[in-house]
Design a protein around this nucleic acid. Structure first.
Lengths: 219, 219
DNA sequence: AAAAGTATGTTGAAATTTCAACAAACGGAG
DNA sequence: CTCCGTTTGTTGAAATTTCAACATACTTTT
């Protein structure tokens, strides 16, 4: 557990929690760590939604896959980020998404009930954790607003530009890397991959952007 | 304030709060009520995101509108439902949406800081309110997942069917009313209104659905 | 009850997206 | 270094969506 300490400290769930408390807390919460190889399923659609996941190392992507196999990327998960906490907190029966490892991963799982309901030891940290959960759920809500703002654009070109402008704003620079390859970007923007490639080429030829693989530059 | 009591009690923010406490609490929270006529803007994009809204009577819709005037309906707001709580809780500077009254409305506004931070009277209810906020933010997260699941479908027909199947599930019946008129449904599904009308006609002719105005039936 | 305004359905043309297929570039594995 | 699998770019045809315009039905106002 020690080696993950720095990552855990950055996790929004443990905001304002002192280091010594954090260590004790993890035992009390019954946290466990599992490892996953690239492409392995960390959480499958239909699984009971009891656990909050925290990415300790590696990265993953959250998908929704329909009966025709069309996948839509909901979000990426980077180290120290939480996932599936909304399903656990809302006490839905099953998670409606699939989380797949992008690369070898270590993931910490915490039973959400251990956070929400006071344990027999009567630990004092539940209030702070609930407050932290609330904050990060609010932040995720805003992430969704942004995704909807981007994908509600009617044309591929507008979606690309809206996404790139958001990335530039986040990076605070006109030059930045995106976390998706072309197929993944297409799945995130909900457009056809080949059409996406064609449109990016066009934007490049028209001198609106520069791009090489995952690196982009707004001109 | 008295006449809104039954509505407020149903609001998820006040879950598990006893009736007598609720009354005192409202004063302490500095809740205020405003009325809006049909089509009036209850909250405008760019407003400071300090306040949580609670719909007391009437209904509204939450929009995102881009620089080209394309509007996307994010959600509807019915009596006893909260809105803009995510922006207030996440402490973003400004709300990124516009909330417009569908019909004459009464709305209660509560400064989110009064909920999150203990007041000088040291009222004991903050913990419960924060817990309730967390729950409803989690639930909204799931709403967004559903919207993304529906709008990520690539064709108008699939979007309609995904939406209607969700409505049927919610109503627990194949016969139900939807809360949108055609233009609004188009804005929610992020498609063209005339194309939507045409596709609904086609579904009707093919015997897949029955529909009359806002009433639908899956066959 | 008529008039005006709004919502819905219909249509065809134009624009866009998807799809399928292939070529080129790239990155590891051996 | 070469081979193989993967990613990215390109293309043209087919399908779909958007757009504009109008007809019809329905509501609200006067």
């Amino acid at each position: 557990m020690k080696k993950h300490f720095d990552i855990l400290r950055k996790c929004s769930l443990f905001n304002q929690i002192e280091d010594e408390k954090l260590i004790k807390m993890l035992g009390c919460l019954g946290a466990r760590v599992e490892t996953f190889d690239k492409k392995y399923t960390i959480m499958a659609e239909g699984n009971p939604a009891k656990y909050i996941g925290i990415m300790l190392s590696g990265s993953a992507q959250i998908f929704q896959i329909d009966y025709f196999g069309n996948r839509s990327i909901v979000a990426g998960v980077e180290p120290s980020e939480m996932f599936c906490e909304a399903f656990a907190c809302a006490e839905v029966a099953a998670v409606p998404v699939t989380v797949v490892a992008n690369e070898p991963c270590e993931v910490m799982f915490i039973d959400c009930n251990h956070i929400l309901h006071t344990c027999t030891n009567n630990c004092g940290f539940h209030q702070q954790l609930i407050f932290n959960l609330m904050k990060s759920l609010a932040t995720k809500n805003i992430m969704f607003h942004r995704k909807i703002e981007i994908t509600s654009k009617r044309s591929t070109r507008e979606k690309i530009m809206a996404y790139l402008m958001f990335c530039a704003k986040k990076a605070d620079s006109n030059s930045f890397d995106i976390p998706f390859d072309r197929q993944e970007l297409a799945d995130y923007l909900e457009v056809d991959r080949s059409g996406l490639s064609a449109e990016i080429s066009k934007l490049r030829k028209q001198g609106i952007i520069k791009s090489y693989k995952k690196h982009f530059e707004l001109l």
